[in-house]
């Protein structure tokens, strides 16, 4: 039953994404691409792109979009409920204990411990995304002659604008989108 599978997959993504929206990326990648094979690498990056372009949390956007791709409108709704439900339960439990004991130091200590691992996990999802952007795929072997130099330039420019001038993600998406529309239409 696809709806139940969708629900369980996204429930698992929701319950394990410690540290905000980007923490859900490696989980989405592992569950939807590697384990279930529901979406491709390319679709994963498209989902990310659309999520950066639209308001709202990335995990919710990704759930709605991939649920829709996999099983229509109902699929999108069920995936979204699945990814949100852990928050609804866990946050209220934490709030209850917090208001009762005014102390969450053990929970917060555990989260502090998880944070460096989460950074590494996001980095590992980042490798897939980076490779796909530069080479068109992320499967070995990577051949240097397959590299897309326009993409390399857009990447470097985007990173430079964010680090040097604090450009926001939405600005980077808009600039690289317009530039891609012009440059690729001219050279292809």
């Amino acid at each position: 039953m696809i709806y139940l599978e969708l629900f369980l997959s996204f429930f698992q993504i929701g319950i394990l994404s410690f540290g905000g929206g980007y923490a859900s990326l490696p989980l989405i990648e592992q569950e939807l691409i590697t384990v279930q094979g529901w979406i491709t690498n390319q679709q994963f990056i498209d989902i990310l792109t659309l999520s950066e372009m639209t308001p709202g949390p990335i995990a919710i956007n990704a759930a709605t979009f991939s649920g829709n791709q996999i099983a229509g409108i109902m699929g999108g709704i069920i995936a979204t409920i699945g990814v949100t439900l852990p928050s609804v339960i866990i946050v209220q439990l934490l709030a209850y204990f917090y208001f009762k004991y005014q102390n969450l130091s053990i929970v917060q200590g555990v989260i502090q411990g998880v944070r460096p691992a989460v950074v590494a996990l996001i980095a590992s999802a980042g490798v897939t995304i980076f490779m796909t952007a530069m080479f068109g795929h992320s499967d070995w072997p990577i051949v240097l002659s397959e590299i897309n130099w326009v993409s390399v330039f857009f990447f470097a420019a985007g990173l430079f604008l964010m680090r040097k001038f604090k450009a926001s993600p939405i600005q980077i998406i808009l600039v690289t989108g317009v530039a891609g529309g012009i440059v690729y239409s001219l050279i292809k």
Partner: peptide
């Protein structure tokens, strides 16, 4: 083409 351009932008955002 637009999405291909944005793909490089998304990679930069994640690396950042």
């Amino acid at each position: 083409n637009v999405l291909l351009g944005m793909q490089a932008g998304v990679a930069a955002i994640i690396v950042n």
